[in-house]
């Protein structure tokens, strides 16, 4: 009976094959050229095929030979909150300015940890926000919008 022995390798293989296929599809119009006159498609398309090939082999081997470690359960809370915090930074920095952004982002991010303490996070974020404006805008003179409408 065929049994999945290395779930990690299967995951990796799927990722490789997916990436290879995406690059093949979006690169379908790039001229391949010849060895002597390589077109812009030569390198990426060859790599895509190699990636797919390797992906298939890695995926196939995941079903044979020795047992491998399981894929550890993802920490959805940590990953999603940190990602949301990053996206919030991008969404806020130009419109709301650094003062607000540097307050909201660490405050939201703090909840990625299960040990979060609300009051502590609030105070800390306020300090971070003021310190960031002081250091980056007034200290290092970086061109970052500070308040609403500065951009």
């Amino acid at each position: 009976m065929i049994r999945l022995k290395k779930p990690q390798d299967l995951g990796a293989a799927i990722l490789f094959i997916l990436l290879g296929c995406i690059c093949l599809w979006f690169g379908r119009d790039y001229r391949f050229g010849t060895l002597a006159r390589m077109g812009p498609g030569f390198f990426p398309l060859t790599l895509s095929w190699l990636l797919i090939g390797f992906g298939i082999v890695i995926g196939g081997l995941a079903f044979s030979f020795s047992e491998g470690p399981k894929v550890a359960t993802p920490n959805w809370r940590g990953l999603s909150i940190v990602t949301v915090a990053i996206i919030l930074f991008g969404a806020l920095i130009n419109s709301a300015g650094l003062l607000v952004t540097a307050f909201v982002v660490p405050l939201i991010a703090a909840f990625a940890s299960t040990e979060v303490r609300r009051k502590e996070a609030l105070i800390l974020s306020a300090i971070v926000s003021i310190a960031c404006v002081a250091v980056f805008v007034y200290g290092l003179r970086q061109p970052i919008p500070v308040f609403f409408g500065d951009y």
Partner: peptide, 15 residues
Amino acid sequence: PYRALFPIILVLSLI
């Protein structure tokens, strides 16, 4: 403690 550190690290990295 780490819970206080990582939000700061994150925002500094992003800036």
